[in-house]
Design a protein around this nucleic acid. Structure first.
Length: 308
DNA sequence: CACTCGTGGAA
DNA sequence: TTTCCAAGAGT
């Protein structure tokens, strides 16, 4: 019965199999996250999805609450300076996301009547919105039947269906086809399916130490049936950090974030003795629009008067 | 397609 | 202590 799992999923919603198990598990194990509640707005869901790109839930929570209080609608954020978005982003990492979120709010204000566009296709045109985020917002906020493929979904599919410990380094066509075949036909059921698989990957089918004893589909899992063989092939190299431009950019931006107003060049020079790298990074931050140079050797987070 | 882009907590 | 990696996107 090696094909039982895929077979049970044929058509996307065969009764009594994979879907029932996962959905039943989700109904009892799901976390109570504010952007999942019934009173969550499309804007709130949109913001949460961008913040959650490569950033853990625990770190996003307090920042998301602050953003929702300060900017309850896209028009509220659009009316504020992009630098304020960068400042309020805090230490979530990848601060260009804050800038793109602000740009997206401006686009919603100018082209979508101040609202989050409802279709996956329209969402895809917004800055900072890729395949995952467009699909996620379209289904979680608007109930459109989409194929949501994130790192959790990829890992669950790799194990349960393909039988590998980890998904490929980069998403494959076969993977997407497989994910598509698993999405239930009914849009509402598809929405719950997607969030449920993501939750399964986040809480049970984790990257390092999967809790197979708590998994609702462990007896169908091809990786489990194969004896949980270790990943084959070259080890995926981790992200270097010490001495990288990313670290330097982070240090510079932190210095700017901590000051309410413009910062003199000398203050930025105090961040690092490596002048060459420091200047290169400062230049790149300016090029990215994360830092705004002012007269008299002053620098600040981007203000509102500047044109995008 | 390969590479870059932050951050900090857990193992 | 070092390593891993978390609801990706853009180039």
């Amino acid at each position: 019965m090696t094909g039982s799992l895929v077979g049970a999923a044929s058509g996307g919603d065969a009764p009594g199999g994979l879907h029932e198990r996962v959905l039943e598990w989700y109904s009892g194990a799901q976390r109570d996250l504010p952007w999942r509640r019934s009173d969550a707005t499309a804007w709130g869901i949109f913001v949460s999805e961008v913040m959650l790109q490569q950033t853990p839930v625990a770190r996003v929570l307090p920042v998301w609450v602050e953003w929702m209080t300060r900017w309850p609608e896209p028009t509220d954020l659009a009316a504020d300076a992009p630098g304020e978005a960068v400042r309020a982003w805090g230490r979530l990492g990848y601060p260009r996301r804050a800038l793109r979120l602000h740009s997206a709010a401006v686009a919603m204000t100018e082209r979508h009547g101040g609202k989050v566009p409802m279709s996956e296709a329209e969402l895809s045109t917004l800055p900072g919105v890729g395949a995952y985020t467009a699909a996620a917002v379209a289904t979680f906020a608007f109930g459109e039947r989409t194929v949501v493929v994130d790192t959790n979904v990829r890992r669950v599919i790799a194990r349960a269906v393909t039988g590998d410990q980890y998904a490929a380094a980069s998403p494959t066509r076969a993977e997407h086809t497989l994910a598509t075949s698993l999405v239930p036909t009914d849009p509402d059921r598809a929405r719950t399916w997607s969030v449920a698989v993501m939750e399964l990957g986040a809480l049970v089918c984790t990257a390092r130490a999967p809790r197979c004893g708590e998994c609702p589909i462990s007896d169908l899992c091809r990786w489990q049936l194969r004896g949980r063989p270790a990943h084959e092939g070259p080890p995926r190299r981790g992200q270097a950090w010490a001495g990288t431009d990313r670290q330097m950019r982070g240090a510079l931006l932190r210095r700017l974030r901590e000051s309410p107003g413009p910062v003199p060049r000398a203050a930025l020079e105090a961040v690092s003795d490596n002048a060459l790298q420091r200047e290169r990074c400062l230049d790149s931050l300016v090029a990215d629009g994360l830092v705004e140079p002012l007269p008299r050797d002053l620098f600040q987070l981007p203000g509102s008067r500047g044109t995008s």
